[in-house]
Amino acid sequence: MNIDSEGEAQRDRAAKAFRDAGLDVDELWMHYFSMGGDAGALETEAYLHGSYMLRPIQRDLLEHAIYELGNFEKE
């Protein structure tokens, strides 16, 4: 599997998890930012819509931010 298809598969996975969890994109970006994410809110939204690609480590972070927001109670 080359880099691109790995990235695209991860992006599809994240977009689906984001939709399934019914999250707000601003709220997600804020959480991702607080975990060390450095892509902007616009890039994040574009990534989830499939029109932008994030660096691998940013993809991992965003995926985990979606997981945390969907699985932990709000503070």
Partner: peptide
């Protein structure tokens, strides 16, 4: 709206 939710836009 949560406080964090408002954050990104503001």
């Amino acid at each position: 709206m949560t406080r964090k939710h408002q954050m990104a836009g503001e």
